[in-house]
Design a protein around this nucleic acid. Structure first.
Lengths: 216, 216
DNA sequence: ACCTGAACACCGTTCAAGT
DNA sequence: ACCTGAACACCGTTCAAGT
C-alpha cells in the first residue's frame, strides 16, 4: 500500500516519460546534496535547481512549492523503510517471538544507519513540513506488517496484541531517533541497540499470557 | 548546573534591569503565541516584535538573530524539564528500583504533557537550529541525576549501570517524543505510557545481577 | 543610552516571453 | 508544449536618525 499524499503537498506532475524521471531524480539527488553540504537554512530553490541543472521555473512544474519537494523526498525515504520492514516481517513468519523482535530492531536500525547522513538530514528537514499524514501512513503499513508477523509466533499469545505492538513500535522508532540525534559514539550506539533488543524481549516475555491465563 | 550556550547562539544582552526582563518575557511569550497560532513558517521577526509590542530593532538588541531567539526558548524549556527530573531523582533516593523507574517515566511524561501544545511547537521549532549543544547539556544533567538515583536503589546492582542508564533514558525520551508526534488518542497514549513503564521494569529486572553474579 | 523603522540583500513563487 | 529567468512580494538583518 502506498502512502496517501494530501492534495496541497502532492507533486504537480507525475513523471510519465523517461526524460521527466531523470529530471525528477536529478532534483531529488540535488536536494539531498544541498541538504548535506549546506544545511537546511541554505536549502534554496535556486540552489537546488542550479545543482540539478534546471531552472527554478522547471522545478516548480514538478513541485508546487518547496514544502512539496521536501515532502516527496521524505515520502520516498519512508516508503523504502516500510518496504524493508514488510520484507523482514514476511520472512520471519512463524519463528519464535524473540527472533521476530531482534529482526525488527535490526532492520529498522540498519535502514536508518546505512545512510545515516541522509537520515539525519531528513529528520531535520521533515519538521519543516506537515508530515502528519506521512507518518500516519507509514505507521499504518508497519503496524499491519508487524501485527501479522506476531500473530504467527508459535510460542506466545497476548491479552492485547494491538497495544503491545503499538508500544513496541513507539519504543523502537523513538529510541532509534533519540540515539541518532544524540550522536553517541558508534560503539556505544551499538551497545544501546543490543540493550534495546534485550529490553523488547524482556517486555514481550513479561506481557505474554501464561498457561494459567489461557481461555478455557 | 545551567546549560552552556555556544557563543554564536547566545543572547546579546543579559537583562539586568526589571524593564528588560519584562521585555524579554514579552518576546518569549509572543514567540510561543505566534508559533502556536501561525506555525513555524509564519514565525517572522516582525510578527514576534509586533506581538511583543517592540520594534524589530529592539528585538535584535536581545537576540543577534532569529535562531538565537528559538534557541533561548528551547533552552528555557529544557532547563525546566531538567529541573523537574533532578527533583524527582533526589526525592526518590533509596526506594526500590521499580518505583524509581515509574517516577522517572511519569515525571518526564507529565512535563511534556502538561503543555503539550508548547511541547509540540518546540519540537517543531527545535530542528531549525543547531541544538546539539543544548541536547548534550540536557542529557548530561539528566544522566547525572538518574545515575545518582539508581546508585541508591536498595534492591539491585548492575554490571554496567552507565549503559543501562543510557539505554533507559534513550528509550523513555525517544518513546515520549514518538508518541507525541503520532498524536495518538489520549486513552491509548496513557496505555502506552503504562506499558513503557512496565517495559522499563522488565528490562531492569532482567539486567540486574543475581546473587550468583555477585563479586566475591 | 536606547529605540525606531526605512533600507538592503536574499528567498519563494509567478508568468510573460522565448524556443 | 515546455523551459527560462527577470520581476514581485516578503523576510532577516542593519544602521542612520531620532528621543
Amino acid at each position: 500500500m502506498a502512502t496517501t499524499t494530501p492534495g496541497h503537498l502532492a507533486a504537480r506532475k507525475k513523471p510519465l516519460q523517461a526524460r521527466s524521471m531523470v529530471t525528477l531524480d536529478a532534483i531529488f539527488e540535488a536536494t539531498i546534496q544541498v541538504l548535506l553540504a549546506q544545511g537546511l537554512n541554505r536549502l534554496t530553490t535556486t540552489r537546488v535547481a542550479d545543482r540539478a541543472g534546471v531552472s527554478v521555473g522547471t522545478m516548480y512544474q514538478y513541485f508546487p512549492h518547496k514544502q512539496a519537494l521536501l515532502y516527496a523526498l521524505n515520502e520516498r525515504y519512508l516508503d523504502m523503510v516500510a518496504d524493508r520492514i514488510e520484507t523482514t516481517c514476511s520472512r520471519h513468519a512463524g519463528v519464535p517471538i524473540a527472533e521476530m523482535v531482534d529482526a525488527l530492531v535490526n532492520t529498522y536500525w540498519a535502514a536508518k544507519t546505512e545512510r545515516s547522513d541522509v537520515t539525519r538530514a531528513l529528520y531535520r528537514a521533515a519538521v519543516e513540513l506537515d508530515n502528519d499524514a506521512l507518518i500516519a501512513a507509514f505507521a499504518q503499513r508497519v503496524d499491519t506488517a508487524t501485527i501479522a508477523m506476531f500473530c504467527t509466533a508459535p510460542d506466545v499469545r497476548f491479552a492485547d496484541l494491538s497495544l503491545v505492538n503499538t508500544t513496541l513500535l513507539a519504543v523502537i522508532f523513538g529510541t532509534v531517533r533519540n540515539v541518532f540525534e544524540r550522536r553517541l559514539p558508534a560503539g556505544l550506539e551499538n551497545d544501546v541497540r543490543d540493550q534495546l533488543a534485550q529490553m523488547c524481549r524482556s517486555y514481550l516475555n513479561q506481557a505474554a499470557l501464561t498457561d494459567a491465563d489461557a481461555p478455557s
